[in-house]
Design a protein around this nucleic acid. Structure first.
Lengths: 139, 139
DNA sequence: TTCCGTGCAAAAATTTTGCATCATC
DNA sequence: GATGATGCAAAATTTTTGCACGGAA
């Protein structure tokens, strides 16, 4: 799905939930859509500030929470303390470099063999995090 | 490995690294060894306070960091903002309830089919997090 | 005795909230 | 025009740090 289509989906979801479509919300979502780095709130804020200097940190916090609630971004945890956000909704997993902290999306060709139910636990989604050393840290 | 053996391993690692063995460090590690809940720093602190009221939060923060550095606990991220710690070093994965936030260890019978190397990335460890609804939240 | 580790308190960093104003619908 | 969103600043929360003292080696 391209960015335009994603933004249209966002508009649609907002209308469904009676959420207003504001420039701030679009800006936050667009940063997330264009980024492959799974940015923290602070990183999102810094990127937005270049274009829209008036946007406040509080709004970014509020917006990522909304985006998470309406299912357009996922909160992801990797390494360190920072909460990060990811707008890539397609099934994918992550490689995290334990040296430099960089994150890279990984898709498997072969599926992971994980049951949909364990001991009465219903599994909605699976996140596989692989930790190791990335090529540029090998040297 | 039982708790006694784990504590001996801890003592050994400390000697290797010229770290002093203090009651506080043992207390923190013991809480982590006995807990299956993957506690946060605050939860560790509260448990220790019952036995050793003088221990400070700062020490707990410093100790979990040391334990992580010497490879005796893992920092795990699941849901929400809290950083949690896990002293179970055996290969296992986690189920996280997206309603109540509870965490449960999961071991697979069948292995997950994950390569040891992807595009020049060397994979040291894999963490599979399954998100869903636990039995007590189904009602 | 020598250091390293600790407690305490202060500082720093991160996240949330209340409220008046503003913008979207 | 009504309602909900925003910015700002303050508050709450979480984590880190400096320093003098105390305890482990």
């Amino acid at each position: 799905m391209d960015i335009k289509a994603q933004l249209e989906l966002f508009v649609e979801r907002c209308k469904e939930k009676k959420l207003k479509i504001t420039p701030q919300r679009i800006a936050v979502y667009e940063v997330l859509l264009r980024s492959k780095e799974h940015p923290t709130v602070e990183e999102i804020y810094n990127q937005i500030k270049e274009k829209y200097p008036y946007v406040s940190m509080a709004t970014v916090y509020r917006t990522v929470e909304i985006l998470e609630n309406i299912g357009l971004v996922k909160r992801v945890c990797y390494w360190g303390n920072s909460t990060r956000y990811d707008a890539n909704l397609e099934e994918h997993h992550h490689f995290i470099c334990i040296k430099c902290g960089s994150i890279r999306d990984v898709s498997f060709n072969g599926n992971i063999n994980i049951p949909r139910e364990i001991d009465g636990y219903t599994i909605n989604s699976v996140a596989v995090n692989m930790y190791g050393i990335c090529p540029s840290c090998k040297n």
